[in-house]
Design a protein around this nucleic acid. Structure first.
Lengths: 205, 205
DNA sequence: CGCCGATGTTGCTTCTGTCAACATTCATTT
DNA sequence: AAATGAATGTTGACAGAAGCAACATCGGCG
């Protein structure tokens, strides 16, 4: 196996993706630069064009990878807990992911008006959402969520964790530690203090 | 009052802000360019530096204005309805704002890791959140929300509408019309189908 | 009337994305 | 085994943008 990269480097595509992820983690999607990624991969400023049509395609590839990681993080969360708890843990995993790699997360969801042109990325996002729907379905089957179409419920759950993630990353939430934000998220997901509760009379045993 | 701008244009700062808002609405914060803003304002590419330290400061000013508009939109929402309904309407106004000016909304919340350096912008965001807290307080006073510290409740409400706004703008929600997204938001805020209900033994008379 | 600070302009330098032309290597075919 | 063509990388160019410096123009001050 050729460990030396005399001229053809071997797996530039992977190296570029890694460099891009690293760069984005450091300086954000905005500070990210094709040339700097090439520099870090040890190739000339034009080598990336042999593997990606343009800058946006590399960004899209990074986002695609992010959706994969996010999906696995959600799937790994408490795989043998009660279905409803699996869903909650998956939500916490979502927020945890967003807080650990805020820039990567931003690359996945910001500047999407053009990302729509990358079907692989859209498919990865779709799969990611699909696991959420599956989790909701599980909770429904266990009678822990109201029956019916799971999609609206999944979208609602997604909205909550996504909102917390985005606001936290934007520095708009008052908690500074990841643990504190996750506690807030857990409290919100448990629904103890319903965000905007129904005005109907509450049942208290 | 000098209506002519022979050499000194009179109110370049305002004109630049307007041009920037317009430009951002067209091409997004990413496509935004200081030089193009200057071009639209009819001045040379370096005139903006007399009014803003750099590109980011102009962006921050645009974001600051956005927070003001958003706040007013929330305050205008159903000013004489039931407190809990005022809160819901304010949430809908939030999402409506985000959907109507997605790029402006993005300028307010994306790339914030650096926006923190602009105290005016942070203050505007703070005021914006403050009106939300006030609305929650009103609902609490009317007995329509659980008593206690209104801040966590306000943050939860904010997270929901923010999540819906961001996902919708990212094209991740399935509804294509603004009205449909707003209906989804209204349903979510009414809380009829709780997103992730408590797993604790349910009280059923 | 002459000076000064504010505002606007022209002209650079550096960096980036992208195109075009050229170089190197590998695999395959003869 | 030598040659050839497709991948893959490299060098060099150009346009556009951010930002710095030096210069120009204007209004208000003595």
């Amino acid at each position: 196996m050729p460990e030396e990269r005399p001229y053809h480097h071997g797996n530039l595509k992977e190296a570029l993706l890694d460099a891009a992820v690293e760069l984005i983690a450091e300086t954000g999607p905005r500070g990210f630069t094709l040339r700097e990624a090439a520099r870090r991969a040890g190739v000339s400023h034009n080598a990336p064009y042999r593997h990606f049509r343009d800058k946006d395609e590399l960004l899209a590839a990074v986002a695609t990878g992010g959706f994969g990681r996010l999906m696995h993080a959600m799937q790994r969360a408490a795989p043998r807990a009660q279905p409803i708890d699996r869903l909650r843990r998956a939500g916490l995993a979502y927020v945890d992911f967003a807080l650990r790699w805020p820039q990567h997360f931003a690359a996945m969801f910001d500047a999407p008006w053009e990302a729509k042109a990358y079907p692989e990325c859209a498919a990865a996002a779709e799969r990611c959402f699909g696991t959420l729907v599956q989790l909701v379905r599980g909770a429904q089957a266990a009678g822990q969520m109201p029956p019916g179409d799971p999609q609206p419920l999944a979208y609602q759950a997604w909205s909550i964790v996504h909102g917390i993630s985005k606001l936290a990353n934007a520095g708009q939430l008052p908690w500074r530690s990841r643990a504190a934000v996750l506690r807030f998220c857990a409290r919100t997901l448990t629904g103890a203090p319903k965000p905007v509760p129904d005005a109907a009379p509450r049942c208290r045993p």
